[in-house]
């Protein structure tokens, strides 16, 4: 067995065994905002996420009321936030607003 094959086999086995947890992606959340809401809301993703503090976004997410909190941040996006599409992608949006909340200290580029 060549070193190439050995490394590939070990890596494939280890990675497939180790991989587990649920996945949310702040960068994807940023792109989704840019695609679906930037024009509707009339401000950038950075401004949107900074409407609330991390604790506020966290509380709403845990209570299952992230859609309502986001409507508060962007009333013009009400129809989108109440739709099925948002529910499906909620984790990515949450990751994005959490990472770039008012008190996060991070700065998004969109």
């Amino acid at each position: 067995m060549t070193p190439f094959t050995k490394i590939a086999m070990v890596a494939l086995f280890s990675f497939s065994v180790l991989s587990s947890s649920a996945f949310a992606d702040a960068e994807k959340g940023k792109k989704l905002y840019q695609k679906n809401l930037k024009e509707v809301c009339g401000f950038s993703g950075g401004v949107f996420a900074a409407k609330f503090k991390q604790a506020d976004w966290d509380k709403a997410y845990k209570a299952g009321t992230l859609d309502k909190k986001m409507i508060e941040a962007c009333p013009a996006g009400k129809a989108y936030f109440e739709g099925d599409k948002f529910k499906k992608l909620e984790n990515h949006y949450y990751d994005f607003v959490h990472d770039f909340a008012k008190d996060s200290g991070n700065i998004p580029s969109c």
Partner: peptide, 17 residues
């Protein structure tokens, strides 16, 4: 290549040729 999240975005792995 194969980009793999192991523990969400905090622990990831890659296999690339």
């Amino acid at each position: 290549y194969w980009n793999i999240p192991i523990v969400g975005k905090n622990l990831t792995a890659q296999l690339r040729y």
